[in-house]
Structure formats: C-alpha cells, structure tokens
Simulated scan of single mutants.
Amino acid sequence: MSKLDEVLADLRAEGDQLDDLVAGLDGSDTGGWRTPTPAAGWDIAHQIAHLAWTDETAVKAATDKDAWDASVLAALADPDGFVDVEAARGAAAPHDELLHRWRTARAELEKALRDYPSGEKLPWYGPPMSPTSMATARFMETWAHARDVADALGVELPRADRVRHVVHLGIRTRGFAFAGRGLEVPSEPIHVSLVLPGGGVHEDGPADAAQSVRGSAYDFALLVTQRVHRADTDLVAVGPDADRWLDIAQAFAGPTGEGRPPRDAR
C-alpha cells in the first residue's frame, strides 16, 4: 500500500466515523444538527458544512483551474470572513441535503487525489501540496472537527492509531508555529516521543537531542489542533524551545488561534 493509499484509507475511516455520529441527528438545537459546538458561533451543521466546502475546494484545486482561481479571488475579497461565510451558507441547508453534499465531496476528493499526476503538487491557499499532503491535511481537519461534534454531543470517540497523521503534521509545522507569531524559529533539534492509542510509539528527531517532548499522541494531536489547553494534557517538555512550542503549537495554516482555555477556567 502506498503512503497516499494509507492516508486516504484512514481519511475515509475518520469521515465514516463522523458520518455515523451525525447521520441520525434531527434538525433540533438540543442533541441535533443545531447543537452548539466548542467553536464559537458554530453548531454541528457549521462543522459539517465547513468540511464539505473544504473538500469541494480541494477537488477544484485538483481538477478545475478556473473554479479554483475563483475560490482564491473570493477568499482574497474577504480574507478574515470567507471561512465563516461558507460555513454559514452550507449550514443553512436542510441537514439531509448537507450530509449528502459532504458525502459526495468526500468521494470526489478521494478520486481526485488518486488521479492527480504523480510528482505534481496541488495549488492551495498556502504552499502547494502533494496529494498525500493534501490527504493528510484533510484528515487532520476531519479529525479535529469530529472532536468538536463529539464534544457537543457529549460522547467519546474511539481512539485509533490513525491519529498519527495529525501527530506527523503537528511536528512538521513546528517552524510555522513560531514564524506565524513573528518568533525566531529555533534551530536546535527536538526529540519527540509520543505513545499511540494502540501502544506503539511515534518518534521524531534525534534520540540524543537535549530537548524533547513526550506523552500521549492523542493529547498532542488535540493540542496541535487547538482542541485542548496544554494544562489538560500529559505532555512533558524538556528545554526552552520544546516548552515554548507546546504553548503555541498549531498544525493548521491560517491565522494563529487562541486555543481552548483550561478546563478549570471554563
């Protein structure tokens, strides 16, 4: 199995899990599609609408230059608001139509990434991405929004080793987390050792590095997607750069987020 096949299979599994979570909900605001989520101003419908829109936009990037260019122009016209605008527009549709839209977008995206020319990169709002990198980014966002929906419904999703894709992205974006805040990107290596839900260990960086981050891979994924405050994780940093990184970690592109407050402050 190629790396792209692996990530796409895990993306499909993550999408199906979230699909199962929302498919039986009604249009109510208590336990249904209108239930508020931890994302300010977004209910469950907004979460699914955002995933559908982003999957559709990725398909445009892979298959339709004119449609992709139009998406970029729309984003440039409202750089601070276009994400919320598209989420609200999608969320206004009947929930069965929205679910069908998201299912269609997921299937089309998988096909578009499989069919994309080998060795070429897709355009995106940040740097261009290979199909595997795009699939990894879509996994990260699907995983993160699934946690928002689960939190809104008061359920605990199973912890699976496929979270390693979020971990991988969170480590690779360390420099961006610093640069995005106008901070000098540290040059000293950091050894990362994180325990996956199944008991395996995801490691990165030289084992003899003076600085390190250790703990749960699941907690690390929650932190880099800004779904949890650092104080509510089991992550341990050794060294000033590693410690600062955990304060500002961010696996997604775009403006730096504020993250979640500690549980005790909610």
Rank of each mutant, 00 (worst) to 15 (best):
Thr54Arg: 04
His229Asp: 15
Lys111Cys: 01
Gly154Lys: 05
Leu109Ser: 01
Ala9His: 06
Val236Arg: 13
His46Glu: 01
Leu73Asp: 14
Asp55Asn: 13
Ser118Met: 07
Pro38Ile: 10
Glu203Phe: 07
Leu153Phe: 10
Pro186Ala: 09
Pro189Gln: 08
Ile48Arg: 00
Ala52Val: 04
Gly31Glu: 09
Glu108Asn: 12
Pro127His: 09
His191Pro: 02
Tyr218Arg: 00
Val224Lys: 08
Val236Lys: 13
Ala179Tyr: 04
Arg101Gly: 04
Ala107Asn: 07
Ala253Ile: 04
Ala39Asn: 04
Leu183Val: 06
Arg162Glu: 02
Pro255Asp: 10
Ala209Gln: 06
Leu25Ser: 07
Thr136Asp: 06
Val163Lys: 00
Ala92His: 03
Leu183Asp: 13
Thr30Pro: 01
Asp208Ser: 14
Glu110Ser: 12
Arg147Asp: 00
Gly198Cys: 01
Ala49Val: 04
Trp53Phe: 15
Lys111Phe: 02
Phe252Tyr: 10
Pro255Trp: 03
Ile190Ala: 10
Pro123Lys: 06
Gln211Leu: 05
Ala61Val: 08
Ser2Arg: 11
Leu76Thr: 01
Val83Met: 15
Leu99Ser: 03
Ala105His: 01
Lys60Val: 03
Val59Met: 08
Lys60Thr: 10
Asp5Phe: 01
Ser187Ala: 12
Thr136Pro: 03
Gly24Thr: 11
Ala87Val: 07
Pro197Asn: 00
Pro206Ile: 09
Glu184Tyr: 04
Leu222Pro: 00
Gly119Tyr: 02
Leu18Val: 14
Lys3Ser: 12
Leu73Met: 07
His100Asp: 15
Leu73Thr: 12
Ile171Cys: 12
Ala40Thr: 13
Val83Tyr: 10
Asp43Val: 08
Ala107Arg: 14
Ser28Glu: 05
Asp19Tyr: 10
Ala75Asp: 08
Val224Arg: 09
Pro38Lys: 10
Ala135Leu: 03
His165Lys: 01
Tyr125Asn: 04
Leu98Tyr: 02
Ala210Pro: 02
Glu258Phe: 07
Leu18Asn: 05
His191Ser: 11
Val195Pro: 00
Leu76Val: 03
Gly90Leu: 00
Gln17Gly: 10
Gly154Gln: 05
Ala67Asp: 13
Val85Asn: 14
Arg12Trp: 11
Asp151Met: 08
Pro79Met: 11
Asp148Met: 02
